[in-house]
Structures are given as C-alpha cells and as structure tokens.
Nucleic acid binder design. Structure first.
Lengths: 229, 229
DNA sequence: GTCTATATGAGGATAGAC
DNA sequence: GTCTATCCTCATATAGAC
C-alpha cells in the first residue's frame, strides 16, 4: 500500500499510488530526501537481500540513526515497496508507449526486449530485489505485495499478445508455445542483472542487440531444421 | 566446509567433502535422518529464503524442537551448505560424464541443456536457494561459500569451450559472444525453477526440447537475416 | 528532522537432563 | 536423539526531548 509518512497529495496513481509522481512542485525537498533514502536502501537490499539489510544499516548509510528513518517511512516494508513500484511504474509505462505506437509484432517484440535491457542500469537495484526477494515479499501476511502479481500478469498479457500476433502473421514460427517463449525471454532479460556490468565493450544496448539476434535467428548456422539435435 | 556433527569417514570428496557419498553402509540410518532434515530445510529455504527460515521452523517441520537440530548440524549455515553441495556435485558429475563421452559440439551443448533442465525436478529447492540466496551466502564472512564461485567457473569453462568449438567447426554462428551466450543459456535454464510445474502437457524433457529448438534455430520464420529489426 | 532511550520480541545457539 | 531451559545478540519499531 505504500504507506507514506508525508502524503503530499493524492493523485490517481499508475499502479497503486504516485511514487514516481512529482509532488506539486513544493520545491521537492522533502520528497528528494525521501527518494534519496529509498535509493540508498535499494542498493543495500540488492546487495544483501531485503531481510539481511537492517534499518540500522540503511540509516547509517544515510548518516542518521535508525529511529530517524521512521520519520520518513512507517516501516522497512514501505521502503522496499517504494523501490519496486518506482521500477514497475516506469517499466509498464514504457511498454504501454511502445504498444500504443503500434507496428509489426516482430518489431514490437524487439522493442520490448530493448526496453527490458534498457531498465537494467537505471533500475539495477530494484530488479535485483525483485528477483531475489519476490518469494519472500509475496509470502508476507496481508495483500500489500499482491500488486506484484497483478503487474506481472499485465505484462505477460502484453508480450503474449505480440508473440501470438507474430505467429498469426507468419513472422514467428508457430510451433513454439507463446507463454513458454515469453517466460524464457522475460527471465533471460531480468536475470542479466546478476552479472551485467557496463564496460568498454559491453553496454545494455549491444547486450539487447545480441539477445534479439540470437532470439530471432538462433545460434545455429546454415539452414533451419526442425530436427532436434 | 560442511561441518558435520557426525563425520562418518573422510573420503576425497567431489567438490569439498562427501555430502553425496554414502557412509560405509552403516545401514545408513543416521545419514538418512540427516538427509531427510536437509530436504525439509531445503524446501523451507526455497519457499521463504534462507534467512527468513528459522531453525525453529525447520525443527517443527521435522517434528522436533530447535535445540535438537544441533545434534545433527552445528549451524544453520551447515544445512544450506549441504543443500547446495549435493546439487552441485550431481550437476558437475553429469556435465563431466557428457564431456567424457565426446561428440560434436552442437550435440554436446544440446545434451548439456537437457542436463540442466533435468536437474529441475530432483533439485528444485536447491536451485531456488542457489539463485535467491547466492548474494547473501557469498556476502557472509569467511570463505565457506567460496566454492560456489569455483564451481561456477568450472562449469562456465565447460560451456564456453563447447560453444567456441561449435563456432570453430562452423556449427554455430561466429558473430555471437561465447561468454555472453553461455550466460544467457545458463540463466534461461535455472531461472525456470521460478515457474516450472510439471503437468499434463509440460515436463522438463519437452521444456528442454522447446528451448534447444529456439536456441539453435531462433524464433523467426523464413531466411535468416543479420539485419537487426 | 534528528537524537536518545528503550520496549518488545525473535533469532541462533548452548548445556545438561532424560 | 530429543527435550527443557535459557543465554545473548540483534532486530524493528516507538516515545518524546531537542
């Protein structure tokens, strides 16, 4: 539910509440401070896991004491909640934009792959937390993190629709399972956060192109065979 | 280091100690009990995460009290250690067997993919723990879990060698990065534990074939193009 | 908005009786 | 091999002063 200590205005939020929405141009000082704390926490969550990260560590990272954190957030859960919704709002927004532009399914799918890899750097910590702590957060009592599944379902729907369109128009082979294929793609992208480090020769853009190429054209050389090795 | 309370004979172990090794046919009662406890713990670790799982829960699952667990294991870490080594011993053993048989690189790679998917059911819990708690276990003080990286490196070497061989003999396209490709394959396989559930139409065998097909031949129909969509 | 001080509980682990 | 009882530490969260 993203319970904030300082509400700052109720807008009809994207996924649940605002989180990414900028507050009425109140010079944003309070909100910036809050966002900064969330970022620090996200890094710790990503590095050590949500549970292994203590509120004391988060506070220490920010140069304050743990008690002071509770002026900004009413619980540790609220912090991780905000980490995740910020990422998911951005992701879903990007997907929607691509789909609204329209186009051929194969091109759209390639674009969606690029979006995924494109979130790797700005949302590295959130994606890591999402993957490592998904089970745990979902297992918590209450419905606070139910939206994770809701968003996942919406995104899955977007992908599967394009894969099926691609198969219908003959751009994609019809003998693969759309849902299975989607999951493979999804996982291949996100799991990359585990090892991805941008350097001289590797960035998210060419990582995306590398993946798009092998995804559509495969690893093998020569003619395609439906024979199984 | 897999510190056991009941040693049972020092053998020159596979990865570190025995773990999978059967103890001198002592009717195996003590070892069976131990293995059973490890299995119960693994399920809990997989479901809730290593840290979120308490020794009290593990004991309760086994119908004993937490203090009694320490008759079998000297710490919670020892339990998860055993969960992981059991899996890794099995995995690496299978890889080595395939490589010893030899053959064409593409066929070997397909076989290695099948091995990966084949471990999904027998080692579901261990694989889940490995993925979710890798960072945390690696972050613990001491070198206890250093072997995780050691095994990972060994396995990576096996895969990359075959991919490069495949490229050298012209079975695999030469314009993809071997290491990048390996990581994509590896991740695609393991991450499957998150959602894989065998049912009437899906089992690990056809999941593997589905993946092998798209991996080698790609998703697209028609002629290959090096053009990027 | 931060600090001090502290409530309250849970966790891993131990010692020794049975 | 399990139980009882308990130690010790560290966690989240709160209350109220500054």
């Amino acid at each position: 539910m993203n319970t904030r200590k300082h509400s700052g205005g109720t807008a009809t939020g994207p996924l649940k509440r605002q989180s990414t929405m900028k507050r009425a141009a109140s010079s944003g000082s309070a909100s910036e401070r809050r966002d900064h704390l969330v970022k620090l926490a996200a890094e710790l969550f990503a590095r050590k896991g949500f549970q292994a990260t203590t509120v004391r560590e988060i506070a220490e990272e920010a140069g304050i004491l743990s008690g002071s954190l509770y002026h900004h957030f009413d619980s540790k859960e609220t912090i991780v909640d905000e980490v995740l919704t910020t990422f998911l709002d951005d992701l879903v927004g990007r997907y929607r934009a691509v789909l609204e532009r329209g186009g051929e399914p194969r091109a759209i799918l390639a674009e969606m792959v690029r979006i995924g890899f494109g979130t790797l750097e700005p949302h590295r910590a959130a994606i890591t937390v999402m993957q490592n702590d998904w089970n745990y957060l979902r297992s918590l009592p209450g419905d606070r993190f139910d939206y994770l599944v809701k968003v996942e379902d919406e995104v899955e729907g977007m992908w599967i629709e394009q894969i099926k369109r691609g198969q219908a128009v003959g751009q994609l082979r019809a003998d693969v399972d759309a849902k299975l294929t989607y999951r493979m793609i999804r996982d291949s992208i996100w799991v990359t956060v585990r090892w991805f480090k941008a350097d001289g020769r590797l960035n998210t853009a060419n990582l995306a192109e590398h993946y798009v190429t092998t995804l559509f054209d495969g690893l093998a050389t020569g003619e395609r065979s439906s024979q199984r090795t």
